[in-house]
Simulated assay, not measured.
Amino acid sequence: MKVAIVTGGSSGIGQSAAIEIAKRGAGVILTYGNNQQGGLETAALIEKEGGTAVALPLDVGESAAFPAFRDTVAEVLRDTWQRDTFDFLINNAGFGQPSSIADTSEELFDRLMRVLLKGPYFLTQRLLPLLADGGAIVNTSSNYAAATSVEPGYAAYASMKGGLDVLTRYMAKEFAPRGIRVNAVSPGMTRTRIGDDAFTRFPEIIPAITAKTALGRAGEPDDIGAVIATLVSDESRWVTAQNIEISGGYNL
């Protein structure tokens, strides 16, 4: 059985990706930050459908915790799947907080950097010895990093996601000798808990988003999760170093 690690699997895109990957027959190790209940619910949903999942706590903004997390992953792989490697890594965990350049504090900038760029960099580095040859990595980026989707208030957030886009290509190059494929997905505006549940708190923003979207609606987590699951599957065996926008044609 293939095994995937999905960070930020307690809700939204990460939860959908974990469930979609499990539906295709892989075991899942998913992580949660502050939302333990969501993490356990995701694991329960997978197991209800006959899959196998383990939920683990992880703050991707605290790289000092990565060695202990790696050891825990190794134990879970042995105990749950009788393996010493896993196959797919989904670097998805993150947060968003809009702030103009004029108002952004160094504290917010540094936190965005630690979670959105430094975290995926060093978590991947730490887990790489456990990642099986022929495996796959997907990094969750954002269409805010695209030249066609610049929105005021997201300079710091988009800069980190732009760095992740570059990192994706370098990972693809460096890991290719081991047959490991690396791609990114760039969701458009999607109904998730990111930004403190902005969609729920500010429903008035939805009509403006749909008006800018060619397919005429806001994105849903399953729109993204299905693509992530496809990218780690053998169907995408000849796809690497790509950044796929999943936005329904935002600003098209």
Results as ranks from 00 to 15, higher is better:
135 G>D: 01
109 F>H: 10
87 D>V: 10
198 A>Y: 14
36 Q>F: 06
133 D>E: 05
169 R>C: 01
56 L>Q: 11
225 G>N: 00
130 L>I: 05
48 K>I: 05
83 R>Q: 12
85 T>G: 12
248 G>H: 02
44 A>S: 15
95 F>Q: 05
238 W>T: 03
76 V>D: 01
203 P>L: 00
151 E>K: 13
2 K>Q: 06
61 G>C: 13
229 A>F: 04
14 G>T: 03
28 V>G: 02
236 S>I: 00
8 G>M: 11
71 D>Y: 03
144 Y>A: 15
16 S>Y: 04
53 A>D: 08
160 M>D: 08
180 I>C: 06
43 A>C: 01
115 V>Q: 09
167 L>Q: 11
244 I>Q: 05
38 G>D: 08
162 G>E: 04
233 S>I: 02
145 A>E: 11
92 N>L: 04
235 E>R: 03
222 D>N: 10
54 V>I: 13
97 Q>I: 12
23 K>I: 06
147 A>R: 14
149 S>D: 15
107 E>G: 11
163 G>Y: 07
206 I>R: 01
156 A>W: 08
248 G>T: 01
15 Q>A: 06
117 L>Q: 04
152 P>H: 08
240 T>P: 07
46 I>F: 04
58 L>S: 10
29 I>S: 11
81 W>L: 02
175 F>C: 14
75 E>M: 13
13 I>D: 04
40 L>F: 13
32 Y>P: 06
231 L>H: 01
161 K>A: 06
93 A>C: 06
75 E>G: 10
73 V>H: 00
145 A>Q: 15
87 D>C: 03
243 N>L: 15
200 T>W: 05
177 P>A: 11
173 K>M: 08
216 G>C: 08
107 E>H: 00
141 S>W: 04
124 T>F: 00
185 V>S: 01
152 P>S: 10
15 Q>H: 13
19 I>R: 07
39 G>V: 11
121 Y>H: 12
176 A>K: 07
48 K>N: 12
155 A>G: 07
118 K>F: 11
21 I>Q: 01
33 G>S: 08
70 R>T: 14
198 A>I: 15
149 S>T: 12
239 V>Y: 08
65 A>V: 03
148 T>P: 13
192 T>K: 03
70 R>W: 09
195 G>S: 06
225 G>H: 02
141 S>C: 11
246 I>P: 05
77 L>M: 02
137 I>N: 00
105 S>Y: 04
29 I>K: 09
133 D>C: 02
51 G>E: 03
233 S>Y: 04
155 A>N: 06
110 D>H: 14
41 E>M: 14
187 P>W: 02
173 K>S: 13
118 K>N: 11
49 E>W: 01
50 G>I: 10
98 P>S: 10
249 G>A: 09
116 L>T: 05
172 A>S: 01
18 A>V: 05
241 A>H: 00
130 L>V: 00
34 N>E: 09
171 M>K: 12
126 R>Y: 09
9 G>Y: 07
176 A>Q: 14
123 L>H: 11
157 Y>P: 00
213 T>K: 07
232 V>A: 04
62 E>M: 15
151 E>R: 13
87 D>Q: 01
46 I>G: 00
59 D>M: 11
85 T>L: 09
185 V>W: 02
159 S>F: 05
42 T>M: 09
208 A>D: 14
224 I>V: 13
170 Y>W: 12
31 T>I: 09
13 I>E: 08
206 I>N: 10
114 R>M: 12
